[in-house]
Design a protein around this nucleic acid. Structure first.
Lengths: 212, 212
DNA sequence: AAATATACTGAACAGTGTTTATTTTCCAAA
DNA sequence: TTTGGAAAATAAACACTGTTCAGTATATTT
């Protein structure tokens, strides 16, 4: 009987080590995405970086998609932090503007992470088993709650919070992702270097338009 | 000397055959995308379908990206045709509504083609050499011209045609692509089967909002 | 110290895009 | 009609990818 606490201690440590290994794997992947781009992230490259065999990664993640799901989670954590830092106005509509700016800025400072969070299919494949997409929740809830407050205080034209949330998110994401995937460049006569300004202006105008 | 016309005839025929082979390759790829999805499209699978060796494809396309560029071109041709069929109102704003509906409907009837046209990176890689993205031009011009007319006749709130074009396009694309890449589902409490209706409503509301 | 459970890995499988040396096919001149 | 040379097609390989599995090394328990 006296061995129980000992065993439990070891089990606990084992779980700690398991969690730490997963953290090492995810950290390596995040670093590779940021520094070398999403396309360079392969199981073998991650294994090289953390100095383990590729097969070892499969002891901690059932497949690459599941790994990328955790990478995505980490990316969302940094976005949520940006939100926390940069959204601080009293006026809810002012907060909405701050959120839009923070979102746009994040997409520019971490384009590869933005890609993984909102465009790339892979991390979403795990949701067939997971049932719910928890990664985006804090950020989504931040916007949803804000839109709800804006509607209640009648500072926006929207009636329904869900439609408002998807509209604002969709508008920003549409412009950002078209740009990110090269669909703005070389279409129309807008010079490449001006596209970022056009996007920022479009978002500004949109926010002005939804103002009640 | 009498051989010249003969040679030219053969050269002509060779060029016809070359063009036809490229058409066969692209057709096979289009069919595979539509029927089995983009991920099933590999050089080997295309080669199997047209009953040639994989290496043969490289006699007609320098790489897969260039091939996909032609597939994308074909996809844009069908979108342009949809536009021609479905946009026929006199009132420019009514035409804008028709365009939005046609665009949304296209994304639903050919989601995999939509993906290749507006989301997937691969076909845009050839633009480093090609300098200009011609594929999307007719469709883009249709929207741009329409927005210009709407601005001139003061039926929309926009002042600048380029910003108007990117705004409308971006709004629709944002919602469509978020849905297509699984970011609408399982976020918030909107049931999956209602998302299409929410998107349609959001676009409706948006068009109402930009109306002058 | 021996037995057992855990952690790790080398090697392989099946797939991908792409290249090169070789073979087959075609056409024109001898 | 046969032959020489160009053009077209290919088999095989290379360097990758994600993933699996049999076997080895390490750690824990008996």
């Amino acid at each position: 009987m006296h061995c129980k606490p000992n065993n439990l201690g070891i089990i606990e440590r084992k779980e700690r080590e398991k969690a730490e290994m997963r953290r090492r794997i995810v950290d390596a992947a995040v670093q590779m995405i940021v520094e070398e781009g999403y396309e360079k992230v392969s199981i073998r490259n991650i294994a090289d970086k953390i100095e383990y065999s590729p097969a070892t990664i499969y002891l901690y993640y059932k497949d690459k998609d599941e790994l990328l799901y955790d990478v995505q989670s980490q990316a969302f954590a940094t976005l949520a932090e940006e939100f926390r830092e940069k959204i601080n106005a009293e006026d809810p509509f002012k907060r909405l503007e701050q959120l839009a700016i923070a979102y746009l800025e994040f997409s520019r400072q971490h384009p590869e992470l933005y890609d993984l969070m909102f465009i790339i299919k892979a991390p979403m494949n795990t949701l067939v088993e997971k049932e719910k997409w928890e990664n985006g929740d804090p950020s989504y809830d931040a916007l949803h709650g804000l839109m709800q407050e804006c509607i209640e205080k009648k500072v926006v034209k929207f009636k329904d919070a869900t439609i408002a949330t998807l509209s604002v998110w969709g508008f920003a994401h549409g412009l950002i992702s078209l740009h990110l995937r090269g669909r703005c460049t070389k279409v129309s006569r807008v010079p490449e270097e001006e596209v970022p300004r056009v996007i920022a202006t479009a978002i500004d105008e949109y926010l002005e338009m939804i103002k009640a």
